[in-house]
Lab assay of single mutants.
Amino acid sequence: KFGRVHERAEGPAKILAIGTATPFHWVDQSSYPDYYFRVTNSDHLVDLKEKFRRICNRTMISKRHMFLTEEILQKNPNLCSHNEPSFDVRQDILVSEIPKLGKEAVLMAIDEWAQPKSKITHLVFCTRSGVDMPGADYQLIKLLGLSPSVQRVMMYQQGCFAGGTMLRLAKDLAENNKGARVLVVCAESSAIGFRGPSEDHPDNLIAQALFGDGAAALIIGSDPKMGLERPIFEIVTTAQTFVPNGDCHLALHLREMGLTFHCTKDVPPTIAKNVESCLIKAFEPLGISDWNSIFWILHPGGNAIVDQVESTLGLEPNKLQATRNILREYGNLSSACVLFILDEIRKKSGREGLKTSGDGLDLGVLLSFGPGLTIETVVLR
Rank of each mutant, 00 (worst) to 15 (best):
I72K: 05
K281T: 10
E10F: 13
V338W: 15
T312Q: 05
E71C: 04
T40E: 03
A336I: 00
V275F: 12
G3A: 07
R8W: 03
Y36D: 01
L320A: 03
F295Y: 12
M108S: 09
I326P: 05
E7Q: 10
A136E: 11
E310H: 00
T40M: 11
E344A: 07
I93P: 09
D247L: 10
V365F: 08
D43P: 01
H253E: 10
S334P: 09
E71N: 07
E84L: 00
E7P: 04
S62R: 09
F233E: 05
T377H: 13
L250V: 11
A105D: 03
L320V: 04
D137T: 01
I18P: 04
S42M: 01
V267G: 09
A13R: 03
S368T: 07
D47L: 00
L315P: 06
A336K: 00
E316F: 15
T40D: 02
S368C: 05
V131P: 14
D307L: 00
F242G: 11
A17N: 08
A9Y: 10
I326M: 15
F369P: 15
K265F: 07
H25D: 15
E7W: 02
K103T: 05
F125L: 12
I110F: 15
T323E: 01
D47V: 03
L333A: 03
D137E: 10
D28L: 00
L342Q: 13
S42C: 13
A13W: 02
T59M: 00
R324E: 01
Q29N: 07
P12G: 07
N83V: 11
Q91L: 04
C56F: 08
D111H: 14
T377G: 06
T260R: 11
Q115H: 04
V39D: 11
L333P: 07
L315V: 06
C278K: 02
P23A: 08
F283D: 08
E234N: 05
R328V: 00
I55K: 07
S86Q: 13
F67A: 12
I235P: 09
G19T: 05
M257P: 13
K63P: 01
E229S: 00
S334M: 02
R351I: 09
F242K: 14
F125A: 05
I375K: 15
G360I: 00
T127W: 06
R53I: 11
I110M: 14
T40L: 06
R58G: 12
E7F: 02
K14H: 15
A17E: 01
N83M: 13
P148L: 03
W26C: 14
G135M: 14
I72R: 09
E10L: 09
L254A: 15
A9C: 10
T374M: 13
T127S: 08
V338Q: 15
V338M: 12
S81F: 11
L363V: 03
L373W: 06
A304P: 09
H44Y: 07
I61H: 14
H6Y: 06
C263V: 10
I305M: 07
P231F: 00
M257Q: 15
W113T: 11
V236F: 12
V379E: 14
H122E: 03
N318T: 14
N332S: 14
L313W: 06
S31Y: 11
I110T: 05
L140S: 04
L48M: 01
D137N: 12
G145V: 06
N303I: 08
I297R: 03
R4A: 14
G135E: 01
R351C: 03
I271Y: 11
L250P: 00
S357W: 11
L286N: 01
E276Y: 01
P244M: 01
A322M: 01
T356H: 01
L339I: 04
E316P: 03
T374E: 13
T264P: 14
I98R: 04
H82A: 05
G302C: 13
K103C: 04
G372R: 11
V365C: 14
T59L: 11
Q321P: 07
P33R: 08
Q29Y: 01
A21S: 06
G353E: 11
W26A: 09
V379L: 11
W296E: 04
T377D: 15
K14S: 12
R346S: 03
E234R: 04
L286K: 06
T356Q: 01
S335G: 11
M257R: 11
P371L: 03
D43V: 03
R8A: 11
L373S: 15
E284K: 07
L361S: 12
I18D: 00
I280L: 11
I110D: 01
A9S: 06
E112H: 00
A272L: 13
T356G: 05
R255T: 02
G11R: 04
I345S: 05
K265A: 12
L143N: 09
T264V: 12
I297D: 03
L380V: 03
C56L: 05
V365D: 14
L45C: 15
H82R: 10
N325Q: 14
P77G: 02
H122Q: 06
K265E: 14
L361N: 04
D92W: 04
T237N: 11
P269A: 13
I375C: 14
